[in-house]
């Protein structure tokens, strides 16, 4: 993809002419983005046990896609839960938290972003962003409860006989409102089992689960205050059921940037890598 199409001319004009990579090793998926030669490339894979090995695979894939070599790489920024293990001897590398990377990524992909809702494999975060520069103003995260996270939805999909992708899509076919009273993962699971036993349609159960999870996330976001424009990112952002449930509870439609928001952290990391290079940290 052309960098100008993805980021807009104003941002691209501020970037140095160098190739950088951002690697975001999440708990479920590892994502990477390469910025260079006027283009943006992305790659995704399942997070392996060895973060470095996963990152190497992604980096090599991106270099091939972009038709450049390792020597062309100016800087790498690592982020995500697997970031601690990341290091490259031959390329200047630094580590930045996913909060800053997501903020910068959402800003780069949509300049007006003020609020980010980021739901990943094992946590949910809400971040307020300065629309002027993509810096974090405030953030809040829920790392104690798995409700609504990728891991939770994966489990529910399994119980309903769907793939994770199907869970969101099929929930949109729901025509019956069911109340899930429990917001706790463990209890919600048993509630799903008993709803199935009662003969409720999986589509309706899926919609109910999304709504219950979205309520939990909305409560988190409310503590931070919600400034549109809101961008939904992280691994769960591709789940249409969750997106719809959240939009209806929050009362604002989410902005949809030109790139899949699953890559927001990796893109933010790649933009930060450009800034690092620019600042002479190479």
């Amino acid at each position: 993809m052309k960098a100008n199409d993805v980021f807009g001319d104003d941002l691209v004009a501020t970037l140095p002419q160098i190739t950088t990579i951002g690697v975001d090793i999440g708990s479920r998926q590892a994502k990477a983005a390469l910025i260079g030669g006027g283009s943006v490339h992305t790659a995704i894979t399942a997070s392996g046990v060895d973060s470095q090995e996963t990152a190497d695979r992604l980096v090599n894939r991106l270099l091939r896609q972009a038709g450049v070599t390792r020597d062309d790489l100016g800087f790498v920024v690592g982020t995500g839960y697997g970031r601690i293990a990341l290091s490259y001897e031959d390329v200047p590398t630094t580590i930045v938290t996913e909060i800053s990377c997501h903020a910068m990524g959402a800003h780069a992909l949509n300049r007006g972003t003020r609020t980010i809702i980021d739901i990943g494999g094992q946590d949910a975060k809400a971040i307020r962003v300065d629309p002027e520069n993509g810096r974090v103003i405030e953030f809040i995260m829920n790392d104690k409860c798995a409700a609504g996270t990728g891991r939770f939805l994966e489990r529910i999909a399994e119980l309903l006989g769907y793939t994770l992708e199907e869970l969101g899509e099929r929930s949109l076919e729901s025509d019956k409102k069911i109340d899930i009273s429990s917001q706790c993962v463990v209890f919600a699971e048993s509630e799903v089992i008993s709803l199935k036993a009662k003969g409720e349609r999986p589509q309706d159960i899926a919609a109910a689960i999304h709504l219950a999870s979205a309520r939990r996330v909305r409560n988190l976001v409310n503590r931070l205050g919600l400034d549109p424009e809101i961008v939904f990112c992280g691994g769960v952002s591709n789940n249409l059921g969750m997106k719809q449930a959240l939009e209806s509870l929050v009362g604002h439609p989410f902005t949809t940037p030109k790139l899949d928001m699953v890559y927001a952290g990796a893109v933010g990391a790649a933009v930060l890598a450009q800034r690092h290079y620019q600042a002479g940290h190479a």
Binding site: Y81, I84, V96, T97, E98, I99, S100, D123, R135, V136, I137, E138, F139, M141, D143
Partner: peptide, 15 residues
């Protein structure tokens, strides 16, 4: 501490 706890602290300082 958990990685999440460490990340919150680091993100706060970055912010």
């Amino acid at each position: 501490p958990t990685e999440e706890q460490i990340m919150r602290v680091k993100a706060f300082v970055e912010m």
